[in-house]
Each structure stands twice: as structure tokens, then as C-alpha cells.
Design a binder for these strands. Structure first.
Lengths: 227, 227
DNA sequence: ACCTGAACACCGTTCAAGT
DNA sequence: ACCTGAACACCGTTCAAGT
């Protein structure tokens, strides 16, 4: 039996999908800063110049990868007026989880306005849930903005820690050491609250932030939007 | 009268201050991505290698520049229990203003925990104001985290727009065009809210976000922190 | 239309050599 | 101790040349 002369598995022909998949694969392996045109090209056994047929430039590649990731967000049940708040928290938490699973992807978006197909899809559902809860449309409009900014910023911060390879214990330890050097007379409030400032996991702090915003939404007067 | 052979003004000797000032000067002139070791060195009429005596690396340079910027934040009046809320909003708004004035600096911090001297100074005052307002210590601890993340993320987003040279009108226009392409049947909520989603200035949205969080803070039960 | 090699104009950082 | 030139190991993007 003659051996196949192939030394590599047959590689798929180039396509936008192949480029995005290669990008996501490099993201998993080397983090977001590792997603260079050269590295993605190498993954496809070609040179960086070849990618420019399928993506306009590096930012475009990253943007399309982001939307690919956003497509994995599960919207959950249909909005239910009885359970809207729980559904909302759960959806927003799933968004964060998907971003965290694709570490560093949160550093991609250059604006938080949903325009790519899958961010629009998610925003549509968030709005639907808030409407099911009877929240004023004007408040909804601005809340969506704020909460997406918050979710992305949270994932962004986590991705930095992961990149630097520090775990939560290490972070707490560093903060404690930093705070330990503070002058108790100059910073009495920080000093006396040290144990609280370093408390809680990332998840707990995120969920507290969500509670703040949703609770606020239910008590704040809607913005005065002139149309 | 013999002319001075000097073709340039006497340049100050290198020092950490001189390096940071040069960095801030490059930041003003060319934005945060323009703050390269080479550009900062050129500003000081030297080569990039010379900077490594005063800063550990580029990230360290940026971090120190950030704290230099934070030193410009005016803390305002002493906390007053009658006016704490107004004082708080005003301080948080001034923080954003200082970040916006040094465009792109918001893209520097790799963690939002206040450890550098001037971020500690600002955090101390924020905590003092919340205590003056009688807010529970456990809520304060996590609120500080959330609100600093929000402020920085807001400035970050603005800096992207500035970098791309788009003004607010242009952004609204782009969004409207993007939304115009939406399928009204697939995204009925977004479609019907289009005019609200594109409404309001960055300042208005930021201040709405602050109101959400502060209002939430007054109605939420403090987190259950085990110590 | 798609792919490629080579080049251009950059980066941050290191290091041996100077003062 | 401070400063420097030169080099190393990278970048994103363009472009002429090929198929």
C-alpha cells in the first residue's frame, strides 16, 4: 500500500469563515495580542498578505471575531412578565460568561453601540425583557448603553488579569500589600475599610453592579429626552 | 555680539519627571498610541534605550503618566452630610472630565483597583462622601469598584471616537444608517425605539448611569460579605 | 479573482561599549 | 551611574508579480 504523499491534513481553501476560525483558534492559544495577521496566516499555512482578500484589516478581523463570539450567547426563555428581572440578570450574566470564555475578546470592541448582527440580536432581547418589566422606554434606551459598557469593562478587566497570569488570591494579596503601605492618617477611610475593599469574587462584584443598576432603574425618573 | 552656538534651547537633563512630561506632551500631540518609547525619546532628543533608566518599560511609563493625570483631579469641598450626593456626582464628573482632557489615558490602566498614590487619594474622598451619606460600608466597598470601572470605560469609549475623528453627529448618523438596515420584523423592539437609542449626548448618558448606580445604592441591600 | 514574496515603515527591549 | 548605537525579534499593510 503506497503512502499518501500528504504530510498535512488537507487544508480547507481560504474563506472568510476559515480566517475567522483561525483567528479564534489563535485567540484560544495565544490570547488577543497573539492574534496578529502573521499568526492567523500561519495557522492557515499562508502569509499575512493573503488575509486581506477576506478582511479589510486587523481591526475588521477582530470585529468579525467578536460577532462570531456574540453568536454563542443563549438568549434563554421568551420574556415573561412574572420573571423578567431574573431572566434579565441571567441573560446579562451569560453574556459576561461568553466573553470570559473567549478571553481578551472584550478588548476588541471600539464602540459599545450594537451594530453587528449578533450584538443587535442580544440587545433586542434585553430591550424586550425590560419592556416586559414595564420599564419606561426612555430609561431602557440609556440603560442598555450603560449595562453593555459595564459588562464589557468587567470582561476587559478580567482578561488583563488572566493575561498577566494572576489568580484572584494573588490579586488580593497584592492589594493588601499595597494598602498596607498606606499612611493610616492620610487615608483613614480606605485604611479602615481595607478588609471590605478586598472582599468578594469577581462574580459577586459583577452581580452587585447589576443589582445596583437594575434597582436604580426601578427608582430613577426617566431621562428627559427631547425628540 | 557673537551668536550663541546653541541651535536648540537648553534641554533639561533627563529625569523621571522629564520623561513623564515628555510622555504627556506626546500624548497631547499624537494620542495614546503615539506614545511610543521612540517618540518620547525623540521629544527629549535622545534614543529609546535612554528611557529605561527612569521607567521599567512602556507600561510602567503609561502607568506613571496616568497617576500624574489623576493628580489633577480636584477633590472639591470637604464632605458635607447635607450635600454629599451632589458633591459625589460632581466629583465623579470631574474625574471623567480630567480623563477626557487627556485623551486616551483611559486606555492605560490594566486594573481598576486604586493602588497608585493619586488614585488612592481620589478613592479616599469618594469613600468619605459615601460615609457622610450614611451608606453601608459593605455597599461602599463594591460601589467604588463598579463606579470607577464605569467612569474609565466611559472615557475609554470617548477616546476611541476621538481617535477615529468622529463627532457625535457622525456617530448618530452612522447608527441611524446601521439601524435603518435592520429587519423590523426580526428586531421590533430596537426598531421602534430607534429614536430613543440614538438620543442624548455622552454627558447625559454618563450622568444617567451615575444616577442609576447611586439610586440603586440607596435601595439595594448591602452585599453579604463574610469576613 | 486569488495568492504570494518581498519590502516598507514601524514597534519594545536588550546589550555591549562608551563616559 | 548614566547614556548611546546598533541589533534582535517582532508588527500591519502595500504592491508588483504571478496563477
Amino acid at each position: 500500500m503506497r503512502e499518501s504523499p500528504r504530510t498535512q491534513p488537507a487544508k480547507p481553501p481560504l474563506s472568510k469563515e476559515a480566517v475567522l476560525d483561525a483567528g479564534l483558534s489563535v485567540l484560544r492559544a495565544k490570547g488577543i495580542d497573539g492574534v496578529t495577521m502573521r499568526a492567523v496566516a500561519a495557522e492557515l499555512d499562508t502569509g499575512p498578505a493573503s488575509l486581506y482578500v477576506y478582511v479589510a484589516n486587523r481591526q475588521d478581523l477582530l470585529d468579525e471575531m467578536f460577532d462570531q463570539v456574540a453568536s454563542q450567547i443563549d438568549l434563554g426563555d421568551e420574556p415573561n412578565a412574572e420573571r423578567w428581572r431574573e431572566q434579565l440578570v441571567s441573560l446579562l450574566t451569560r453574556i459576561l460568561a461568553v466573553l470570559d470564555q473567549h478571553d481578551g475578546i472584550a478588548r476588541v470592541p471600539r464602540a459599545n453601540v450594537p451594530t453587528a448582527p449578533n450584538t443587535v440580536r442580544v440587545a433586542e432581547r434585553v430591550i424586550a425583557l425590560l419592556r416586559a418589566g414595564g420599564v419606561d422606554d426612555r430609561s431602557i434606551a440609556w440603560f442598555v448603553d450603560v449595562v453593555f459598557l459595564f459588562i464589557n469593562a468587567t470582561a476587559y478587566e478580567t482578561s488583563i488579569y488572566v493575561e498577566e497570569g494572576v489568580d484572584e488570591e494573588r490579586i488580593d494579596e497584592d492589594i493588601r500589600v499595597g494598602f498596607g503601605r498606606l499612611d493610616p492618617d492620610a487615608f483613614p477611610n480606605m485604611f479602615s475599610m481595607m478588609h471590605l475593599l478586598t472582599s468578594g469574587s469577581g462574580e459577586e462584584r459583577f452581580s452587585f453592579g447589576l443589582r445596583l443598576m437594575i434597582e436604580g432603574l426601578l427608582h430613577v425618573t426617566p431621562p428627559d429626552i427631547k425628540t
